[in-house]
Nucleic acid binder design. Structure first.
Lengths: 343, 343
DNA sequence: GTTGAAAATCAAAACGTTTTGGTTTATACT
DNA sequence: AGTATAAACCAAAACGTTTTGATTTTCAAC
């Protein structure tokens, strides 16, 4: 049924060795037969059997990505975009991408081990790094190729890409302080995550240079979902001493916070300002459009992929470490004049 | 480095055949050695080499999914959710999911062919079926296992799952007509897509039973993105005879339409009503929350996956065809009273 | 203590490639 | 014509499994 190298060999009356070598462009086969073989392969519709190839060459042309998520039903556009960035780059470089999801913990490391032992992948992309990151410790220990989206507190002796969260939050702080606000609430993310600390420091430092400090009651922890932004904002805004600004640690929570405000008939951008972090596509088309910090997730995904493949191919041996300077994107959720409705 | 069956064989002083058979639970190996072998395999951290297995058994435990999308950077939550549904079900059934994206056309079929010929996948899930669908024709012709999300005009002699788009749009039509509106605009999807026709008929029939007909100027075609919803709605709403209702063929376009309305200082739910289709997670938390038709995409993804695997394993031989009755979800974008702000 | 059947084990082939280490054939040089 | 060199080709091994078709061992029954 399926055409193998053997069928071609028989047809052109050569050994399978020659066919293989012709197809792989070795120069110890005459250009005449090489042409013939390639033409015949074409005609017969030959496609090499990937598994046989991978078994023989001892690599898999596959990179692994295990999304750390509690619910398998992650609808986070941030991850979709990252995934698209990684996946598309992988495809252009002729790599497969093997994706699965696993909640942080025991099972997670086991999943990494299985893929490595089973010879399933050549390397990993590790995302959403944590302060203490067992995945990174494990991979370093095993000396298995990987590239990470984000640093880790303990051990940063590996290749990574990250946005400068400290700087990003400083931008927000400067901007908000510049608008004269003082009653500022913040919805942060899980303190285990490495970027939470980064962003918090940036925010604190940025505000304190304007002599503003965050009240403890105005610091709430969300789980990066729209719902948690909504819930937290609702509680904040129902207080008699409600804040005039809500700074969320990602866009999804910011969007949730805007809904909460609108639910309470507050006008976002006037009665309360809201900012996010990430600049997911939706944030440009929300109402009002969201002021946020742009993190080029799609691009970062591509870079990570490229970086990892270079590591796998041993094209680079030193650790590559990229720290992006993110940019502030000012939109109407912080009160900028709406360019369309001129009133 | 990596533990193979051979290493185990040496350790327990048995042949590799015995080890293999023990590990696979055959009963022609004594329970004592079976136990020993399993224990040793555990201890040595053995994980079978997937590629060797797949080469030998002639199947791949992999299902293919080629997303038909023009831009590889698809951030459509609809697809994310479908993907999650398929992927998670596949994982629980011990199947891999091989995903790639390809724009409709020549290249698309070629991608299918490559995966089949290369023995990469055991079957496909085909999504977003078209009226004339070359993918389906090809797969039927090749007699290759597949399950589709949606029917096709020409040839529906295969296994599929679909929501009843005709019925869904009828629900919308009834509801809107019941509210007394007559100036109704609609943002439809590409007429090539099979569901476009279904939904359009449902809408037309539903409205005409209330003696309402759609004006041609009020019918616009979008590409299912938020931006196209925004653009189309903007044009519709700037007319002097602007419609009082905008019915979008998916949620993303509906959300875009809401932004456009708000941009023009129209209150959604009062000055103009907006409806969607799909009920993506975001629609519940938009402002105002979106009235739409619930399509359980996550579940459908899982069903498709299950269906396909049964076909692959030849557990079913007749074509399974499921048509979901979707449900109307009424929210504030069509003027329902907001339950929280009691005023 | 044979015998025969059942239980336990195994050697070898196969899956479709690539790679190794040749051998054969053609070509060029004395 | 003989030899060295280069060009073209190829048989066999290898990758790590599963499967086929034995062969060996055990043990009950005579």
């Amino acid at each position: 049924m399926k055409v193998t190298i053997k069928d071609i060999a028989k047809k052109v009356n050569r050994s399978i060795t020659t066919v293989s070598r012709a197809l792989n462009g070795y120069d110890d086969v005459s250009s005449k037969t090489k042409a013939l073989i390639i033409k015949t392969a074409q005609e017969m519709g030959y496609t090499p059997n990937t598994f046989a190839q991978r078994l023989q060459k001892q690599f898999t042309d596959t990179i692994g990505l295990i999304l750390p998520t509690f619910s398998p039903r992650f609808a986070d556009p941030y991850f979709s975009e990252l995934l698209a960035g990684i996946g598309n780059k992988a495809a252009t470089l002729d790599y497969d991408l093997l994706v699965s999801t696993r909640a942080p913990g025991e099972q997670e490391i086991e999943a990494y081990r299985k893929l490595i032992e089973g010879g399933r992948v050549d390397g990993f992309i590790v995302v959403r790094t944590r302060k203490q990151d067992a995945r990174i410790d494990y991979l370093i220990d095993r000396e298995f190729p990987f590239a990470a989206f984000g640093r880790s507190e303990k051990n940063s002796d590996y290749s990574y890409v990250e946005e400068d969260g400290y700087y990003g939050m400083q931008l927000i702080a400067e901007y908000i302080a510049g608008l004269g606000h003082k009653d500022i609430a913040v919805i942060i993310s899980d303190p285990m995550l490495n970027f939470t600390g980064e962003r918090m420091s940036g925010l604190r430092d940025g505000l304190s240079s304007h002599n503003i400090s965050l009240k403890n009651e105005f610091i709430r922890t969300g789980d990066l979902t729209q719902k948690s932004g909504y819930d937290n904002a609702l509680e904040l805004l129902k207080r008699s001493d409600r804040p005039t600004v809500i700074i969320a640690f990602n866009d999804l929570m910011a969007l949730g916070a805007m809904s909460a405000a609108q639910e309470l008939s507050l006008e976002v951008g006037r009665d309360v300002l809201v900012t996010g972090f990430d600049d997911i596509p939706m944030s440009e088309h929300s109402h009002p459009p969201l002021t946020t910090v742009r993190q080029p997730v799609y691009t970062i995904g591509g870079m990570l992929c490229e970086m990892l493949i270079k590591i796998i191919k041993k094209e680079i041996t030193t650790h590559q470490q990229e720290l992006f300077k993110p940019a502030l994107v000012i939109r109407q959720s912080t009160g900028e004049v709406d360019s369309l409705s001129e009133e």
